[in-house]
Design a binder for these strands. Structure first.
Lengths: 103, 103
DNA sequence: TGAATATATAACTATCCAGCAATACTTCAA
DNA sequence: TTGAAGTATTGCTGGATAGTTATATATTCA
């Protein structure tokens, strides 16, 4: 383990961590299902629960994570809360992988 | 939790898991550092250890993971083993995130 | 052969997190 | 105000894994 000064990295440590954090948010099948559920427009939590065939608590936790992470946005209408895509980049990445990685 | 037959998913469960697995490989700062270290051409394990400012054992483990995952390729030359990028998609994704996600 | 260099693997620990069950919070309607 | 529907949160547990240390394997050369 030597000093890191031999070749200055193109990206800083903080930037690498930010990038890794984004990948991490997309690194769960259930969260990809949620993305699929909301990619056509706003969906309520209950709709997402049904579309993903998961439980309310689990979906709510993943939604909070994606919202906090800046990938989704939310809007309350009465008792319901509607989530939609805030960062199209997430969808773009999924599509890129689908087209170039899957058999 | 209802049946999942309400809206047939665009991507199958297996496909979502494959996509998530790729994101997972990119979801570690140290592996992104390694990608940076080899993105300009083949590098030996020792070179990568120095470039990433990590330990030999740790780098070797991450390299094995990226190699098994199909992102890197390897070639032995004498005592040294050189790793290089096999899936340019990985670099493309990093660049996409850098350009669209970082401040 | 034997030693040195280069890389890989094994065993271990600490940490993180997905999913679950239970409960709390919020909003609306009667 | 009370009950019900919708959503969020908390505490828990099992499984996965990053990093470390130590050791094993592979290759070259004297």
């Amino acid at each position: 383990m030597l000093s890191s000064s031999e070749a200055p990295p193109v990206l800083s440590t903080a930037q690498l961590e930010e990038i890794a954090a984004l990948f991490k948010m997309l690194a769960e099948p259930m969260r990809l299902r949620i993305l699929q559920a909301v990619c056509k427009g706003p969906r309520s939590v209950n709709e997402i629960v049904h579309l993903t065939d998961s439980t309310q608590a689990n979906v709510s936790k993943h939604l909070a994570l994606l919202y906090t992470g800046g990938i989704l946005q939310r809007e309350r209408d009465g008792q319901k809360v509607f989530y939609s895509v805030k960062a199209p980049l997430a969808l773009k990445m999924c599509e890129l992988v689908r087209a170039n990685w899957l058999d």
